[in-house]
Design a protein around this nucleic acid. Structure first.
Lengths: 229, 229
DNA sequence: TCAAGGTAAATTGTCGACAGACGACAATCG
DNA sequence: CGATTGTCGTCTGTCGACAATTTACCTTGA
């Protein structure tokens, strides 16, 4: 059987339904069709999609644990709202995770395999910076960071990161303009790559720390002005 | 109306069922009645409890996102298994969180309110160290740490901590003996309190770092010997 | 004896239905 | 006119039932 060497077919997973619905809802939230605070009634969704409420309900619980929805007893799901304080604590957590992840990548000598990939990501980033769609830019940016966290080898870091990343994407759905000159953020990422390549654990930590602290400052203060308005 | 000044009744929450079941399952897992790898069939649980499968299913999903159960498509829930590597990554994450939490407690000047509470916790700890039940000792220990994380003021830190704490409790259900001389761990916690009271951010960080690193080393190595056996 | 295949039992995924809870609006009373 | 109470529609929490899938057991054949 050649199947043992390379799987010809993916095992077609027939669980789906609830996961399909979860993906669909996620897209709707991230794309802004569903805005923070909006009600997500399982009966309504079920009617629209032509399925029963059970899988919708499960999808809701899934997105609740992902932090995209919140549920009130006997009142159902609502798209999660965030204020600048939430966002700040989010970035503080992200800081902890990614700082150590970067250090771990260096410490465990996992650098060699990923430097090239990271450079590719930046190319994508520069490319997408010409795009109007902010959501794509954020996506590519998060992809870059995710690769580092994934390469750290700590599965739990990745789990937390993914959860934070989805929440960050939701926030960006609320922001219309790009913060910086196109391509600037992309170029800044080279500093991280250099730090990783240096082989110095502390340097990697410091680079990541700086990078995310700047982002934190930018995003949170921007969000705060949105609130007062 | 006197009601406006002081509420006469607590709002009685009638949500329950699925949450009740979740608590029940959690207890069963933490107490060791359900062991890692065991199957948790929703139909069986539902029959035993005399309820339909729906709330059991939800409880399962709840505990899945809490990290106590895992689910395979069309095969249901199983109590999560952990190897020493999982445990190590868990403690590494815990290290990141609590280190910063301790620093934050100092930085935000939240020390005053909690020092006394922390001392009380230690009294409880010394008390429980006479107890045979390891699970109680771990519980009180986690309570101490939780208080610090909670006082940090970063809600997300607390969220991650609670998730980790429940997983740690599951692991301890597999360990029979106490690591150290009774009361030693309790006394070690005074070092953390002193560091917090010192008002020096870095000192708090270092104390917490040391404390958890020791625990990490102890628990992981102990778990590793269990595996090879 | 053991591997392969087939059938039956058990379990999950999904559905439609019903009772209770909640929110909004109309009705009532001061 | 304002506040409280009653009513109604909608939605959630829960249930029992059915179809699809997995698991366990048993048969069969070499």
């Amino acid at each position: 059987m050649n199947r043992s060497t390379k799987p010809l077919f993916q095992p077609l997973t027939r669980d789906a339904l609830s996961q399909q619905i979860a993906r669909m809802l996620t897209d709707a939230i991230v794309s802004g069709q569903l805005r923070p605070g909006d009600r997500v009634a399982e009966s309504v969704i079920a009617r629209d999609l032509g399925v029963s409420r059970a899988p919708v309900r499960e999808a809701g619980r899934l997105l609740e644990s992902a932090g995209l929805l919140v549920s009130h007893a006997n009142r159902g799901f609502f798209v999660r709202t965030m204020d600048s304080e939430d966002l700040d604590s989010l970035y503080e957590l992200r800081l902890c995770i990614e700082r150590e992840a970067a250090a771990r990548v260096v410490r465990e000598a996992r650098v060699d395999g990923i430097i090239d990939k990271l450079r590719h990501q930046i190319d994508d980033m520069v490319e997408s910076s010409k795009d109007e769609q902010l959501i794509f830019q954020i996506g590519v940016d998060l992809q870059f960071h995710r690769l580092i966290v994934e390469s750290s080898g700590n599965a739990r870091f990745l789990g937390v990161f993914d959860k934070l990343a989805s929440e960050i994407q939701v926030c960006t759905a609320l922001i219309e303009r790009v913060f910086d000159e196109p391509g600037l953020v992309a170029r800044n990422h080279y500093l991280i790559i250099d730090a990783l390549a240096s082989g110095d654990e502390d340097e990697a930590r410091a680079a990541m720390d700086y990078h995310i602290s700047v982002a934190r400052e930018t995003v949170v203060s921007h969000f705060r002005t949105l609130e007062t308005a």
